[in-house]
Simulated assay, not measured.
Amino acid sequence: MKVGLIRCMQTEDMCPATTCFKAMKNKKCAFDGVEEDIEVIGVTTCGGCPGKKAVTRAEMMVKRGADTIVLASCITKGNPIGIPCPNVEQMKTAIKNRIGNDIRIIDYTH
């Protein structure tokens, strides 16, 4: 699995993504049951509200080899402050429309 990780720009100064990386390394939470090795192709943010830059950033990571786009838990669950992104569903839909159905999208990390 070659992962492109997209994080929330609003929480990046509160979280260095270590729990996301730990979940990938240990194949826990969203990565439970993943058989193959997990390689991180890139890490970026959504670009800030409303997350429009996440679409082109996901596309860029796919062009660089990602076969899976992961929206970090800071976006979908609101970790670490408990406020999920109000634009997450629109962001996910726009990413799917841009990158197609051959690329897997995982909507949380831990």
Results as ranks from 00 to 15, higher is better:
Gly42Lys: 01
Gln10Ile: 10
Asp13Gly: 07
Glu39His: 11
Asn26Ile: 10
Cys49Glu: 08
Thr44Asp: 15
Thr45Arg: 03
Asp13Thr: 11
Ala17Phe: 01
Met14Phe: 05
Arg7Leu: 11
Asp13Trp: 00
Glu12Asn: 11
Gln10Phe: 05
Lys22Glu: 09
Asp32His: 08
Gly33Trp: 13
Lys25Gly: 08
Lys28Gln: 13
Gly47His: 07
Pro16His: 02
Gly51Gln: 04
Met9Ala: 15
Gln10Glu: 04
Gly33Ala: 12
Ala17Met: 11
Ala17Val: 08
Val43Gly: 02
Cys20Tyr: 05
Thr44Trp: 09
Thr18Ile: 10
Met14Trp: 00
Val34Lys: 05
Lys27Gly: 03
Lys22Pro: 00
Cys20Thr: 06
Ala17Trp: 01
Thr44Met: 13
Asn26Leu: 15
Asp37Trp: 04
Ala30Asp: 09
Pro50Phe: 04
Thr45Tyr: 11
Thr45Lys: 06
Thr45Trp: 11
Thr19Val: 09
Gln10Met: 12
Asp13Cys: 07
Lys22Val: 06
Ile38Cys: 06
Gly33Glu: 13
Thr19Gly: 07
Cys29Ser: 10
Met14Thr: 05
Cys49Val: 12
Thr11Lys: 11
Ile38Phe: 04
Glu39Leu: 14
Phe31Tyr: 15
Glu35Gly: 10
Ala17Asn: 06
Ala17Cys: 13
Thr45Leu: 09
Glu39Pro: 11
Gly48Leu: 14
Cys8Glu: 11
Glu36Pro: 06
Asp13Arg: 03
Gly4Pro: 05
Ile41Ser: 00
Gly42Cys: 00
Lys22Ser: 05
Gly4Cys: 07
Pro16Ser: 10
Thr11Phe: 15
Ala23Leu: 03
Met24Asp: 03
Arg7His: 06
Gly33Arg: 08
Asp37Lys: 11
Glu39Gln: 14
Val34Ala: 04
Lys28Ser: 13
Glu12Asp: 15
Phe21Ala: 05
Glu39Cys: 12
Cys49Leu: 08
Glu12Tyr: 01
Ile41Ala: 01
Thr19Ile: 12
Pro16Ala: 10
Gln10Lys: 05
Lys25Glu: 14
Thr45Ile: 08
Pro50Asp: 07
Arg7Thr: 05
Thr18Gln: 02
Cys15Val: 15
Lys25Val: 13
Met9Gln: 14
Ile41Trp: 00
Glu36Ile: 04
Val43Asn: 01
Met9Pro: 04
Gly33Pro: 12
Gly4Tyr: 03
Ala23Ile: 01
